[in-house]
Design a protein around this nucleic acid. Structure first.
Length: 384
RNA sequence: GUGAGUGUAGCUCAGCCGGUUAGAGCACUGGUCUGUGGAACCAGGGGUCGUGGGUUCAAGUCCCAUCACUCACC
């Protein structure tokens, strides 16, 4: 259980598989975010049909409602949410930063106000692990702090060290052997602190490692050196999970650097805002001209929306704020990222990841492939 | 038929005792959104102020007529 095996390698990009109590997952992979135990608007059956392998549940949201004890009583996430595939829960640390009001961070943990009703809530390494054990995911995450960008150096240093002490407490608090706890390396875009954090984190020898604290507003030129350094230090024998990253170009560039797992709200959130992911980037279905466009979102796509609906109809639905439209675009966007990862796995297996990434980039960046993307591929050994 | 009221942006309305380039919310048109609030934010287009006269240096605002709509009463 929780043994990660690498199947193929091409430069730094690699494919692999990871055994969880609820099934084997193939990497690299993208995980949809199921905030409240549901991927917004998408049923478990659809999740399986589009090729999702792991669903991410948010500890923060599930702690506020319906509460971990209730979820546990009703069968854990697998039973309660009626999805028997692998689950991963985050630690709640990120939402404390992004949603919590009046948060106060101390050595003990974090006290913050619920964004729903203002209730004072405490979250600590022990509490987070306890909640995640009750929720029952296959993979749980260490309770970390994700400082905002930009953050001053002194604060970042304190935060990185505190997150390491919190990691130790998480591992100590952990009681279930059927869950894998992934540690999270932090450090923002500061390469020295990244190194300190990653090296110290590796010593805990957890079954997987996450790269946290990125995609919080920093430029790509700051983000990629941090990813590159992290994947050099985090061992190749374990899955490497880049948290919160989900732009298609970021997946392609990060896989080149050796990242195995991603999660992001991007495909579903941007879908609810009326944007469909396509090889050229994003298609805005709210634009007036889409109302007369009979083509599917993407003729190459095999998702339900692309097989049945026109851009015109979806545009009409989105404008009317009709549920089906939001659902279908979300479904398509998730399928798009899964297809992208399937194609990446196939390219790695035949040692053609560089060609795959270049083909992707030529469509995605018709006005020129940005330097950060080229550099990520060069650093990964996929661009001569 | 009589009396009263209302006509200002696509919609709902604000515009003081007459005083610069007539405003707001929603809608519309673009844009932003990376460990999820169907949220939020940024920018933009759009009005001969129902119509016709009059008073005045100056009228969305005051006066007269007229049209439309609403309500009340014979």
């Amino acid at each position: 259980m929780f043994e990660f095996s690498t199947s193929a390698r091409s430069g730094r990009a690699r494919t692999g598989h990871f055994q969880t109590p609820h099934g084997i997952v193939q990497t690299p992979l993208f995980m949809p975010v199921g905030t409240l135990g549901s991927v917004k608007g998408i049923s478990p059956q659809e999740i399986k049909e589009i090729g999702s392998q792991i669903t991410l549940g948010n500890t923060y949201h599930l702690l506020l409602r319906p509460g971990p004890e209730r979820v546990q009583r009703l069968g854990g996430l697998h039973g309660f949410a009626a999805y028997d595939g692998p689950w991963l829960t985050d630690s709640g640390g990120f939402q404390v930063m992004s949603l919590g009001h009046m948060r106060r961070i101390s050595e003990e943990g974090v006290v913050f106000q619920s964004h729903l009703n203002g209730d004072l809530i405490e979250l600590s390494p022990e509490k987070s692990v306890g909640v995640q054990e009750a929720l029952g995911a296959d993979i749980i995450m260490a309770f970390d702090e994700c400082p905002p960008y930009p953050a001053d150096r002194e604060y970042m240093r304190d935060s990185v060290e505190r997150t390491l002490r919190w990691l130790e407490r998480c591992l100590k608090a952990k009681t279930r052997a059927d869950q894998a706890l992934f540690a999270i390396a932090q450090g923002g875009v500061d390469l020295e602190l990244r190194k300190v954090s990653a090296e110290a984190t590796v010593r805990f020898d957890t079954p997987g490692y996450a790269i946290g604290g990125l995609a919080v507003g920093e430029p790509k030129e700051g983000m990629y050196p941090a990813v590159e350094l992290s994947t050099r230090i985090l061992p190749g024998s374990k899955p490497r999970y880049l948290m919160g990253v989900g732009h298609p170009e970021d997946l392609v560039a990060s896989v080149a650097l050796g990242v195995d797992m991603f999660d992001c709200v991007y495909p579903t959130r941007t879908g609810r805002f009326g944007y469909a992911l396509v090889p050229e980037g994003r298609m805005n279905l709210k634009l007036t001209k889409r109302l007369d466009d009979p083509a599917p979102i993407d003729p190459e796509c095999d998702c339900y929306a692309c097989r049945h609906f026109s851009r015109a109809y979806l545009s009409h639905l989105v404008r009317a704020e009709e549920m089906l439209g939001l659902r279908m675009i979300s479904l398509h966007n998730l399928r798009y990222l899964h297809r992208l990862m399937e194609a990446a796995r196939a390219a790695i297996a035949t040692n053609e990841y560089g060609e795959f990434a270049r083909d992707f980039a030529e469509k995605r960046f018709p006005d020129g492939i940005p330097e950060w993307f080229r550099k990520a591929l060069r650093d990964g050994g996929h661009w001569s």
